[in-house]
Simulated assay, not measured.
Amino acid sequence: MVRKAVWVGASVVLLTLVVAVAVPTLAQLPTEEDVYAQEDGNATTQPACQYQELYQDASPAVAQVLSDGGQGSGFVYERDDGTSYVVTNEHVVAGVGPGGPVDGAERDPAAVDVRFADGAVRSGNVTGTDVYTDLAVVRVNDTPDGVETLPVANDSPPVGQRVAALGSPFGLEGTMTHGIVSGVNRSMPTGAGFSIPDTVQTDASINPGNSGGPLIDCDGDVVGVNRAGGGDNVGFAVSPALVERVVPELIANGSYEHPYLGVGTVPVTPAVAEANGLNESQGVLVVGTAADGPADGVLVGSNDTVTVDGQQVPVGGDVVVAVDGRAVTSQESLGSYLARETAPGDEVDLTVLRDGNRTTVNVTLGERPAPGEGPAGA
């Protein structure tokens, strides 16, 4: 997105005024825990975040996950009759599981070690993994006393909300960092040819080893599963909505089936809009469909390119502007809707611009294939 700053020059007349003011004492000055936002002309406040109490309450449920391939973090999501299910990242346990015991093996090939806050180490079994959300579940028997679950929020937190990241960055157990929610509905590239939709951005420090640990709000609710730091003051976490959709399936079935539209898209930038004769930069342009995929023969992909301001721009494909009546403003909005609201076998209504006309087409979603076996888009 290009932001244009408009500078307006003005003549300023400085007047010297003698004004009697009451100077507040240091104790009367507002702190960062006081006035938080201004809404409808009235000051609103956000309760102070008691980080010490928050850490004391939440840290017993946060663990270090140790596998043959490295280490990360996790948290207790569910407990049932002495069995706990610890959520972490798929890449923390990649190559370890899921799986069951093998006769004659000294160590279960799906086993990892889970170290809790009190130092107790338990053997865990990877029971489910999902590469597309980078989530995994480890089953742990005989959890130490005093370990409770961390509740997961119903939805992504608002921008500006205070949060804390717990985990073991660089192997440093029991670490807490804090910050705010910097953005929501982010699309996070994975380096594996696809992006994770609907992620939460934060300026709380997230470093190697934090992966799989919880991002929590001041009430102790999980508002994200930490995954990656993208640079100074930029970190990302899998959204609570995706956690609540995927993790129960990983516990019950060991895997999760993602919906699949089978299209590759690009955002409708001003250059794309100009090249395609569009009135506004909105929606996504279909550049291709997967052969024999759900959208094959239903959506039309781009068939040519033109040069606009020195760059090659696709032309001629359908422009998706809405899905099931909801506006598609970007690739992120389309991906988030499919991930959060649909499942394989569902039929979606896509509003598209085709040859200058607005029309609606129906697509029955399929099951997303393994990475690398289809378009990198939705």
Rank of each mutant, 00 (worst) to 15 (best):
M1D: 11
V2K: 13
R3W: 10
V8D: 10
V12K: 04
A20Y: 10
A20M: 12
V21F: 04
L26P: 10
L26Y: 12
L26D: 13
P30G: 01
E32K: 12
Y36V: 12
E39C: 11
A43I: 11
T44N: 10
Q46H: 13
Q50M: 13
Q50T: 13
Y51M: 05
Q56H: 09
S59L: 14
A61Q: 02
S67K: 10
Q71D: 09
G74M: 04
Y77W: 14
S84H: 08
V86S: 08
T88P: 00
T88W: 07
G100M: 11
G104S: 03
A111Q: 15
A117N: 14
G128W: 02
V131R: 15
R139G: 09
D145I: 05
V147D: 00
P151M: 01
S156V: 15
G160M: 09
Q161N: 13
F170V: 07
G171A: 07
G174F: 02
G179M: 05
G179Q: 03
G183D: 07
M188P: 01
G193C: 04
I196H: 02
P197R: 01
D198K: 13
A204K: 01
I206D: 01
N207W: 02
P208N: 02
N210Y: 00
G212F: 00
P214Q: 02
D217R: 00
D217C: 04
D221C: 09
R227T: 15
V243N: 03
R245Q: 11
V246D: 04
N253D: 15
S255K: 15
P259Q: 06
Y260T: 05
V263E: 06
V266F: 00
P267F: 03
P267Y: 03
T269G: 05
P270Q: 08
P270C: 07
Q282M: 13
T289W: 08
A291M: 14
A291V: 15
A291N: 14
G293Q: 00
S302G: 09
N303H: 14
D304C: 07
V306E: 08
T307P: 01
G310Q: 02
Q311F: 11
Q311H: 10
Q312F: 12
G316Q: 06
D318Y: 06
V319T: 08
L334W: 01
Y337Q: 05
L338T: 01
A339E: 04
E341H: 10
T342Q: 03
A343T: 12
D346G: 07
L350Y: 03
T351D: 03
V352E: 06
R354V: 03
R358K: 13
P371V: 03
G372Y: 05
E373Y: 14
A378S: 12
